[in-house]
Design a protein around this nucleic acid. Structure first.
Lengths: 215, 215
DNA sequence: CCAAAAGTGTTCTCTGTACACCCATGT
DNA sequence: ACATGGGTGTACAGAGAACACTTTTGG
């Protein structure tokens, strides 16, 4: 039953916001696709869980920064997806609150205009965006793209950037506050304008909502 | 980069309805977990895609019957999840319109009271049910549990069995007909009662809805 | 005083929900 | 005739969506 070992790789779609949604890519230093851009990826080691592998691979592109959110996307295993042989790739979605400075071979790209990608990484990127868009409406997954404390405008900016559409401020506030997933934090965010109340999510980590954020 | 080959298995959660939701299990004929029940599973072959492997493995439990719907669930890769060594399992959800007669080592079990399962298959089963429940509301995935043509009562029975709650008949009909995902078929279903109009889904395969079925 | 973002309510429409009876057939 | 599931409409309440002005700060 256990014949036919294959290689298992993990590829990570690491997203954050900088006005628009951006994604971390690395330039390949080996064949195949030498010099092309690809998602950060690598083989799973014998003693590590898939999610551990995703964190290790991500740290090769980002240094010691941990993602705020990390979840599995899907696995891709077409027999010829890698010219070197049989490689099954398990993809992960990672979310960061800010674009940290990437390591040398890595670079941030806008999701709206990514480079040509090696392997089937274009498809993986598309599936990551779709997952994130869907999950915004029925979960608090936006926490992955925000610092611990944030203003309602910053939260709304996450929704607007990912969904790529404007949202009414009053309706959005009414809705998210009614969901009881936020609580007021101590301070205010100051700038050259009226200070903004800070909030945080009541529960740590991912929470699926009964209700749906439509606003 | 491509060190450390591991074994890749596919495990299939095959569901159908028979009054309640039931799931296909096979009795293991080898160690580990000899004699225990498990999901139908097996190694991926060198030349087959993951989904092909799922179909092949499913046919070992079901014979030549094809599932109406097949989709990937998630991958599980804890280093010690299989005592024989490093095995990454890619799980699939398969849906059938009717419980076909299983092959010798296979048997249908009610999802509400499954047997003790080998490996981490209990977790995989739970994640399959959750996926199906969620997807009923925002897709036409119920087609996988129905024949090509079906009555509105049969469609409603799918929702009631999977969600495990009663649904109002008038509201349900109003809602699903308003979604324009159904069209009338030619015949009627007859029985010792008024004949029922047959319907079919307008589009073949899975369609994600803009709207949500709440009824 | 000006610019910038924060904050706040009301109205209307639409959708979800609750609810009960007659209809067509088979036996 | 009776049992069985098929099929239908209305009224109410709650949620989504549209919409504009005042407030507070920094410069």
């Amino acid at each position: 039953m256990l014949d036919e070992p294959v290689y298992v790789a993990v590829d990570v779609v690491c997203l954050t916001l900088q006005a628009e949604t951006i994604v971390l890519m690395v330039r390949r230093s080996h064949e195949p696709f030498l010099g092309a851009w690809s998602l950060p990826g690598g083989s799973v080691r014998r003693d590590e869980d898939l999610e551990e592998a995703a964190r290790r691979i991500l740290s090769e592109g980002l240094g010691p920064h941990q993602p705020r959110h990390l979840e599995q996307l899907a696995s891709f295993g077409a027999p010829n997806r890698d010219p070197r042989g049989r490689v099954v790739s398990v993809s992960y979605l990672a979310l960061l609150p800010k674009p940290v400075e990437p390591q040398s071979a890595a670079q941030w790209w806008p999701v709206s205009a990514p480079p040509e990608l090696a392997f089937d990484h274009g498809r993986i990127l598309v599936s990551a965006i779709e997952r994130l868009r869907g999950k915004l409406s029925y979960s608090n997954v936006a926490y992955g793209l925000l610092p611990e404390e944030f203003t309602l405008s910053e939260l709304q900016a996450v929704y607007e950037a990912v969904l790529d559409r404007a949202i009414d401020k009053r309706n959005f506030r009414k809705k998210v506050l009614s969901l009881e997933m936020l609580e007021e934090a101590e301070g205010q965010r100051r700038g050259s304008h009226r200070p903004a109340q800070l909030y945080r999510f009541t529960a740590p980590g991912l929470v699926l909502l009964d209700d749906v954020i439509t606003a």
